[in-house]
Design a protein around this nucleic acid. Sequence first.
RNA 1: GCCAAGGUGGCGGAGCGGUUACGCGGCUGCCUGCAGAGCAGCUAUACUCCGGUUCAAAUCCGGACCUUGGCUCCA
Length: 478
Amino acid sequence: MKIQNTMTGNKENFQPIHNNRINLFVCGPTVYDDSHIGHARTYIAFDVVARYLKYKGFSVFYLQNITDVDDKIIQRAAETGVSPRSLARKFEQRYLEDMRALGITNVNYYARATENIPEIISQIERLSELGFAYETETGVYFDESRFGDFGKLSHQGAEALEKHRIEPDSTKRNPGDFSLWKKRQDGEEVTWDSPWGKGRPGWHIEDTAITENYFGAQYDIHGGAMDLIFPHHEAEIAQMEAASGKKPLVRYWMHTGFLNVMNEKMAKSLGNFTTIRDMLREYEADAFRFFVLLAHYRSPIDFSEKALEQARKSLERIRQAAKIIEEQLEKAPESSAPEQMDPAVALAKAKFLESMDNDFNTPYALKAVFDLVREVNRRINEKTISQTGLQDASEQLREFGEILGLSFYEVGKRPAEKTDAIADNLIELLIETRQKLREKKEWQLADEIRAKLSELDIVIEDAYEGVGKYTTKGSTIG
RNA sequence: GCCAAGGUGGCGGAGCGGUUACGCGGCUGCCUGCAGAGCAGCUAUACUCCGGUUCAAAUCCGGACCUUGGCUCCA
C-alpha cells in the first residue's frame, strides 16, 4: 500500500509502527456551529480510509478530538446568551448526528479537549521544564526558535514565517510563537486551575495531549484538511516532538483538498457554506458520498447542483445493475458448486484493490466498478453469464459498497421527502384508473393523465412491474 | 513576497513516458402501444503556452502565464 505523505511530498510504502495495529488521528470539529459540507468531504474521505484499512485486515484505532473549549465557542455563547459548555454540548450532539446521517461510522472514539486537561497541563509543564515554553502575563507560549524543525511540514523556513497577517500578542518573544495556555481574562467563566493560574488551553495543545494519551508520543497516520497544515499541524509536531524528544510524531500526514463553491473555498468566514443538514434535505447522503469519492481525496472539488446530480445518476447506474443482477439470480436456481471466481469479477476486484492500494484512489476504483457493471450487463443481455458469475458479481458489488460506505443494494431515500397520505391515495387512484384505460388501449386519455401529472412533478414510468408506483421529480424513491 | 495544490474532450474527473480511463451529456440500436426509465454500441480537433530531453511526452526537464489555498480563526 502506498500513501502520499505531506511531510515528504512523496508516495510512500505504508508500514505501520506496530505490525497490524494502526493508530489514526483526524482533527475533529470545534463545536460552536453546525458543520458544513466541506467538513463532510474530509470526514467521508477518512471514513473510507478507515474502512479500507480494516478491510485489509488492520486493526484500526480511529481517534478524533472534539474541540469544546475555544475562543469562538466563548464568543458564540456570549452572543446567544447560553453557557459555553451547553453550546459546545449542543453542537457536539448535532455533529455526531450529522456524521451518522452521512454514514461515517468508523471513528472509534471522540475525545473532548475538556476531558484531557490534566494531560494538557502535563505536556505544557514538560515543555517548560525542557525550555521550549515560557510564561508571560497573558499566557504560556511555545518558543519556536528553540525548535529547529519548525516549518518542516509546510516546507517553510524560519524567515518565511516572519510574515504575519494577524497582529501577534505583544508579550510573545517571536511572532511565530504560539499559545499553549491562555490565562484568564476578566470575567471569563471557562477556566481550569493550572501552575500558571486560572486559564484554558491554547488551540494546538489539546490534540497532542489527546494523541499522547491514547496513542503515545508517536503514531501512524494523522489526517486533516489542507488548511490545517499550517499552523496547526506544524504546532502539533513542535509540541510533541519537543516534549518527547522522539521523531517523527506521525509517520504519514494525509491532507484532503478543499470543497469549493464556484472555485472558492467553502468557509464560515466567507459565508458561502452549506451545512450538512441543509445539504441532506436536498440530496441523499450516498449521492453526496459518491460525489466526494468521484475525485481523489487530495484534489479540490467544486460543489454544485449539477455535480451532485451527475454523481447521483452515476450511483444509480451501479444500483440499477445490482438490481438487475438480483432479479436474474431469483429467476434461476441456486448454483451449488462455487468453482473459480468469474474472471470479470476477479479482474474488477484486482483493479479495485490496486487502485485503493495506490493512495486510496477512489475514482479509479470506481472505474473498476463501472467496468464490471458494463460487462455483467452485456453478458446478461447476451445470456452468456453463468449463475455463479451472477453470484460472484453480486457479492463483489456488495463488498465494494461496504468498503466505500455506499449502499448499492438499497433504493436511495431523500430525507426531506414529505409524505401526505391523502395526496398519496389520490395519486394511486389516478394511476389505477389510468392503468385500466391502458388495458383497454385508451392510449390518448392514458397519455393525457401521464402528461398532466408530469406537469405536477409526478412522474409515472410504465414498466412490466411497478405499476402503481410513481416518483416526484428529482427523487429516487420508487 | 514565501510555501502549497491545480490548469485534461460539452461537463465532472482519472492517468503522469508508448495501449479505450471511467461517469454525465449527445447520437444510434434493443426494449416499449407511445413516452420515459433501463441496457448495449458509438461519439469527442482533450491534455494552458513556449522551449528542451527521447525512437516516443498530458506524462520527464527548463521557462512563462493563469486559478485556488496557506502565511498564526479555518475540515
